[in-house]
C-alpha cells in the first residue's frame, strides 16, 4: 500500500511569534521554519507502517514556496521514499490545499493519506476533513492509534471526554493527534542520503486548481498582556475574593 503524507512548512514551534507592524500577519522574515509538528507525527506513523510491512511506499507532498522542499527533505531523511512539491508563493487556504491534494492523490492513488490534524501557524483544522469530503473517502480525525488490517483501518480518536475507536474502509484519510507517536530524529547519515531521493515539482497551474484566497485578513493582533495577579494569604480570603470581587462563586 502506498501512503501519502502532506506536510506543511511553518514557523518553528520554538520561535516567539511577532505580529507585523501593519497587522497583516506574523513576521516571517529571518524566522526559523520547520515541519509542522503534527505532520511530523504523520510522517512517523507512515514510516512505522512501512517498517511493519503494511506500507510499501511513502510519498510526501508539500504545498508552498521553493523552501518547502527543505521540509520534504526532512521527511525523506526520516524515512519517506519520495517527494512532490506543489510550488506556489500564494498563501493557500485549507480548501485550496485540499483541492491540490485531491489532484495529487488522483495521480498517486495512495491507499491511505495521513496528515496533521492542524498546522500550528493558522490552526485551521480543516484540510483533512475537506479532503475526505472532496474525495468521498472515509476519515478518522485526531488519531491516537492507527491499525491497518486488510482492507480496513481501525482509528482510535481523541474526543471530548475520552477515546473513540472507529473502523474505516480503505482508502481513507487520517489526521494525527499529539499522542499518536513520538517522531524520530532524522539521522545525520540519512539527511545526507535524502538528497539523492526523488523530489518532483509541480504547480497549482499545472494541476489546474484555482488557489486564489477566498478569505481576507482584517487584522492580526498579539494576545493581551497578562496583568499582575494577587497573592492571597488564606483559603478563606481566596473564597471571599472569588465570591465578592470576581463574582464567579
Amino acid at each position: 500500500m502506498k501512503i501519502l503524507v502532506p506536510v506543511k512548512r511553518v514557523v518553528d514551534y520554538n520561535v516567539k511569534i511577532r505580529v507585523k507592524q501593519d497587522g497583516s500577519g506574523v513576521e516571517l522574515a529571518n524566522v526559523k521554519m520547520s515541519m509542522n509538528p503534527f505532520d511530523e507525527i504523520a510522517v512517523e506513523e507512515a514510516i512505522r507502517l512501512k517498517e511493519k510491512g503494511v506500507a510499501t511506499e511513502i510519498v510526501v507532498v508539500s504545498i508552498g514556496p521553493q523552501q518547502a522542499s527543505e521540509t520534504i527533505r526532512t521527511a525523506l531523511a526520516m524515512g519517506a521514499d519520495r517527494g512532490v512539491l506543489v510550488k506556489t508563493d500564494v498563501n493557500v487556504e485549507p480548501l485550496g490545499v485540499a483541492k491540490l491534494l485531491k489532484k495529487v492523490i488522483e495521480t498517486e492513488n495512495p491507499g491511505l493519506v495521513i496528515l496533521g490534524k492542524q498546522a500550528i501557524d493558522d490552526d485551521s483544522n480543516q484540510t483533512g476533513q475537506m479532503l475526505a469530503a472532496l474525495l468521498g473517502w472515509a476519515q478518522g480525525t485526531f488519531a491516537s492509534k492507527v491499525e491497518v488490517s486488510g482492507e480496513t483501518l481501525a482509528v482510535t480518536r481523541e474526543i471530548d471526554g475520552g477515546l473513540q475507536t472507529i473502523e474505516l474502509k480503505l482508502p481513507a484519510i487520517v489526521t494525527t493527534d499529539l499522542r499518536l507517536n513520538e517522531p524520530r530524529y532524522a539521522s545525520l547519515p540519512n539527511i545526507m542520503k535524502a538528497k539523492k531521493k526523488p523530489l518532483d515539482e509541480t504547480s497549482p497551474e499545472t494541476l489546474g486548481v484555482d488557489v486564489a484566497p477566498r478569505l481576507k485578513v482584517l487584522s492580526t493582533v498579539e494576545p493581551p498582556k497578562r496583568s499582575a495577579g494577587v497573592k492571597v494569604a488564606s483559603v478563606e480570603e481566596l473564597v471571599s475574593k472569588l465570591k465578592n470581587e470576581a463574582g464567579v462563586l
Binding site: E70, R73, A77, A186, L188, I191, M192, A194, K195
Partner: peptide, 18 residues
C-alpha cells in the same frame, strides 16, 4: 556538503541538543 543539506544537519543537531 551543500548548504541546504548542512543546514538541515545542523538543525537536527540543534534540536537534539535542546
Amino acid at each position: 556538503l551543500e548548504p541546504e543539506t548542512f543546514r538541515q544537519l545542523l538543525d537536527t543537531v540543534e534540536r537534539f541538543v535542546r
